[in-house]
């Protein structure tokens, strides 16, 4: 009775790999590149890669979630990053100014976390508002041309938010040199700033929490169910409106948190979200649409490609090389190296 397929008991990334050539090649290539970077430039660049990779993973996971569950190609994701960066700046700077006159070691240690927390909450709220105000009414009206319509809507949202930011807080760079004014830590003989370490730890913790939420909780399972079969989810009693709002708001909050954590690196300005948006999309196209675990791995691969480009070719090529690689991958594996398809809405 057992068909050959029936023996596939669990698909994990590892079992997928055994039968997936593009993924094997990309992953093996990445490993070779990582070793090459390590040998020629030492562990510093690897640590850099890991920190940026964590952030791309955080952004790309949100994109994948929104795409997989709601079928929305989200091109305003960078603006969530921007709002997070501004929020963290506006929360952190006054506290920091106050600390200049009234030194308090405890407060200076926790002040950045206040910025991160407020940015996350603002991201959650922003996600709820955008979903309820824009996507829900559209979903109730018509599902026709949904992907294209929502794509255009997100581009519109992006315009409004970047220009809104220019109008209210101005076009200037507003930023901070660092969150924690302490000496860098030693790691494998490399000095790493506390800001980077914290950013990495937050990215990993958030991704782990997301993973746990999607795999092990009732609501997380419902999110996955909606992404796999929307009608089926309704049939077992899942409230789609709730799942859609929750998904969108989680994705927005993750991007806002990334913006807040990387404020020291990117600063805050109206179009700060563009570059993170592009990199998150590189990741999504590389690994396959709507594939959350793939997005996490892809985040690190794209960060590594950036580092390699900076090291061996030149910093100006940073955007070019990942794009070329992405085009090559798409020619060979059009649905991404982990080859998942978005199956949510189109069956209606």
């Amino acid at each position: 009775m057992s068909t050959p397929q029936a023996r596939v008991v669990q698909t994990s990334i590892m079992t997928q790999l055994s039968s997936n050539k593009p993924a094997t090649i990309v992953l093996a290539g990445s490993f070779v590149l990582a070793v090459a970077v390590f040998v020629t430039s030492g562990p510093a660049q690897i640590i850099n890669t890991i920190v940026t990779g964590g952030m791309w993973a955080l952004l790309a996971a949100g994109l994948a979630l929104v795409l997989g569950v709601m079928n929305i190609p989200h091109f305003a994701h960078g603006e969530s990053f921007m709002v997070g960066a501004y929020t963290a700046y506006l929360v952190f700077t006054p506290i920091n100014d106050y600390l200049l006159d009234h030194p308090n070691p405890f407060l200076s240690a926790v002040a950045p976390f206040a910025g991160f927390a407020v940015a996350t909450v603002v991201g959650l709220a922003m996600g709820v508002v955008i979903e309820r105000l824009i996507f829900r009414p559209l979903r109730k009206r018509s599902r026709e041309g949904w992907v294209m319509n929502t794509f255009l809507l997100t581009v519109g949202i992006s315009f409004i938010l970047t220009n809104g930011a220019t109008l209210t807080v101005g076009p200037n760079y507003q930023g901070i040199p660092r969150y924690w004014d302490v000496r860098p830590l030693q790691f494998l003989g490399v000095r790493v700033t506390v800001d980077r370490i914290v950013a990495f730890v937050i990215a990993v913790a958030t991704i782990a929490a997301l993973w746990f939420f999607l795999r092990r909780t009732r609501t997380g399972r419902a999110i996955r169910a909606v992404s796999q079969n929307e009608v089926g989810a309704q049939m077992v009693g899942v409230n789609l409106d709730f799942i859609h709002t929750l998904t969108f708001s989680l994705a927005t909050a993750m991007a806002a948190l990334a913006g807040a954590c990387l404020l020291f690196l990117f600063q805050a300005y109206p179009t700060v979200g563009l570059k993170p948006l592009y990199f998150a999309w590189y990741v999504i196209m590389l690994v396959g649409l709507g594939n959350v675990p793939g997005a996490i791995i892809g985040g690190f691969i794209v960060a590594l490609l950036q580092t390699v480009t900076q090291q061996f070719i030149g910093i100006a090529w940073e955007d070019v090389v990942p794009t070329i690689i992405m085009i090559l991958v798409l020619i060979v594996a059009p649905s991404g190296i982990f080859g998942s398809e978005v199956k949510g809405i189109q069956e209606q």
């Binding site: 698909t11 996955r224 169910a225 796999q228 079969n229 089926g232 989810a233 049939m235």
Partner: peptide, 12 residues
């Protein structure tokens, strides 16, 4: 409702 096309969650 057990539908004709089953609407199972195939990746679960």
């Amino acid at each position: 409702y057990v539908s004709e096309d089953l609407n199972l969650f195939t990746d679960m």
